[in-house]
Design a protein around this nucleic acid. Structure first.
Length: 112
DNA sequence: TTAGTGACTGCAT
DNA sequence: CATGCAGCCACTA
């Protein structure tokens, strides 16, 4: 696993996120081995759509507990619907409580 | 090989 | 609380 590309690790990790919980870009980047690559993770999530990757991309949000739309309002709304459907609550400020819904891996998957 | 890009982040205004 | 800004980084053309 540690010899896979950063992208592969990101996709794999994203697939490990249980329904009803969310992870931040930075969190995924950290587990993937590059704590400072949150931005790159965002690019990969975007690419995962185009590449038709089978990953729960909607479970990845920003460190503010908000959905990063960056222009694509449609995708943002879809993402929010999917999360709400899984039980993730959003306040009126469009922010969810990371303290309660953030994904917390129970075991370390590989050497960090 | 190099330059451009952006679903990020934390700190400063 | 809202913006702005400068690092940071893997990916792509």
């Amino acid at each position: 696993m540690s010899d896979e590309s950063f992208a592969e690790r990101v996709y794999w990790l994203t697939r490990q996120i249980p329904a009803g919980t969310v992870a931040t870009y930075g969190q995924i980047a950290t587990y993937a081995g590059s704590p400072r690559a949150a931005r790159a993770v965002g690019n990969l999530m975007k690419a995962s759509l185009k590449n038709e990757e089978e990953v729960p991309w909607h479970r990845v949000i920003n460190s503010q507990g908000r959905i990063s739309s960056k222009g694509d309002v449609e995708r943002a709304e879809l993402q929010r619907r999917l999360l709400v459907a899984e039980g993730v609550a959003f306040g009126e400020d469009d922010r969810c409580d990371l303290e309660t819904v953030e994904w917390e891996p129970e075991e370390i998957f590989w050497d960090v």
